[in-house]
């Protein structure tokens, strides 16, 4: 994939302090096109698509959102907390999204994973899982974990 001027513009919006305090890229110095392409390859090697991953994240988020911030058990093992803030956050790709922080705790293994509503949109529509070192990066190996979560619902 080639880094187009449009991706350049988007990558500038992903720098720290432009849309979010820490930015979307962490300490990743790769071009946005390469980040997306590398993750695309990893996701494909797991036999998944962005769509499938976003669907599961959305399903868990929707289930947890009903309780406005109190932890909710989804299935037997997952404690989901969806903390919504007021206001909207802009996506570097365009559009406004709710500010929601989703934490999923597997009470059996005590492993937890965190994402935001913006993450789901960026994965579904743009295949962007954030740069390495970003606090909201969804590592593909964690994606496999999410899929295990789904089976527990």
């Amino acid at each position: 994939m080639k880094q187009t001027p449009k991706l350049d513009r988007i990558q500038r919006l992903m720098q720290p302090g432009v849309i979010s305090k820490e930015g979307f890229l962490g300490n990743d110095t790769r071009k946005l096109a390469d980040i997306i392409e590398d993750d695309q390859r990893l996701v494909a090697s797991l036999g998944l698509t962005h769509e499938m991953i976003a669907d599961v994240m959305e399903e868990i988020t929707d289930a947890g959102r009903e309780t406005f911030g109190s932890p909710k058990m989804v299935g037997k093992f997952l404690k989901v907390t969806v903390e919504g803030s007021m206001g909207k956050i802009a996506s570097p790709f365009g559009g406004l999204y709710n500010k929601e922080n989703i934490t999923v705790l597997n009470i059996e293994t005590n492993e937890s994973i965190t994402w935001t509503t913006l993450n789901i949109h960026m994965i579904r529509d743009h295949g962007f899982y954030q740069g390495k070192g970003s606090c909201y990066r969804i590592e593909p190996k964690n994606i496999a974990k999410i899929f295990k979560l789904k089976q527990m619902i």
């Binding site: 009903e66 406005f68 969806v82 919504g84 803030s85 007021m86 709710n98 929601e100």
Partner: peptide, 10 residues
């Protein structure tokens, strides 16, 4: 109403 979007929608 005033609160998070999730609460407002519900």
């Amino acid at each position: 109403l005033c609160g998070s979007p999730g609460m407002i929608d519900a």
